[in-house]
Simulated scan of single mutants.
Amino acid sequence: MESRNYIFPGLIAVVMMVIAALLTSLTVAREWEVGTMEQLIATPVTRGELILGKLIPYFCIGMLDLLLAVLVGEFVFHIPLRGELWLIFASCSVFLVGALSLGILISIVTRSQFLSSQIALVATMLPAFLLSGFVFPIANMPYPIQLFTHVITARYFVTLLRGIYLKGLGLRLLFGEALFLLAFAALVLALAHHKLRKKIE
């Protein structure tokens, strides 16, 4: 019944969502604003390779952040970890791919660092903070808002982390949440690949 045990897993999800989408929302837009995108267009690098090159460094940073968060939770705040550690990292890797791809998609569509950063904040921070169940229980929200929370990826990641951290649940009981995160990551990554054009417009 200690509040820190309940808050900590949700806090990981919110931080990962905001940082991941915000960092990658500046990547492609920066290339257009600085003028280096023209040089990339002239190279034989494919769209998939370009997106992968933008995604991998931030993915590594996100996983390092997760490792630090787990260590701080274990040795500083003494948060009980009742589930499997590999399951936390596996679910986080899927969630990170979706969040990073969303940031890249925003960056591709806007081509403006300022605009993409603002959209990323609105599209990730507010829903992740208010509609994921991190601060307010979803069951206490008005019914129309409860329906809307089903499209918020942070909702499923918060449920996953709390289930693994506090209850020691496995994929057998969290399969639905994991499947949604996987589908979201695949969809957004495919959209980012489709929207990226290696030509001057």
Rank of each mutant, 00 (worst) to 15 (best):
M1E: 15
E2D: 12
R4D: 12
N5Q: 13
I7K: 12
P9Q: 03
P9L: 02
L11T: 12
L11C: 12
L11G: 11
I12Y: 00
V15D: 01
M17V: 14
I19Y: 04
L22D: 00
T27K: 07
V28A: 03
V28R: 00
E31G: 03
E33H: 04
T36C: 03
E38P: 10
Q39P: 09
L40I: 13
P44E: 05
P44C: 04
E49C: 10
L50W: 11
G53L: 06
I56H: 11
I56N: 11
I56S: 10
P57N: 02
C60R: 15
L64A: 14
V72Q: 08
V76R: 06
P80Y: 08
L81F: 14
G83V: 06
E84G: 14
L85G: 14
W86R: 13
L87M: 11
L87N: 06
F89C: 01
F89L: 07
L96F: 08
L96R: 05
A99L: 09
G103R: 01
G103M: 06
G103P: 03
L105V: 07
I106C: 01
I108F: 01
V109L: 14
T110A: 00
R111V: 08
Q113R: 07
S116I: 00
S116Y: 02
A120V: 05
A123I: 11
M125E: 08
F129I: 14
L130E: 04
L131R: 02
S132K: 03
F134R: 00
V135L: 08
P137R: 02
I138K: 07
A139T: 14
M141L: 10
I145D: 08
T149S: 04
H150Q: 15
V151C: 13
V151L: 15
T153V: 11
Y156M: 06
R162W: 04
I164V: 11
L166C: 05
K167P: 12
K167F: 15
L171P: 02
L179G: 10
L181S: 08
A185M: 10
L187F: 13
V188N: 02
L189E: 01
A190S: 11
A190E: 09
K199P: 12
K199A: 14
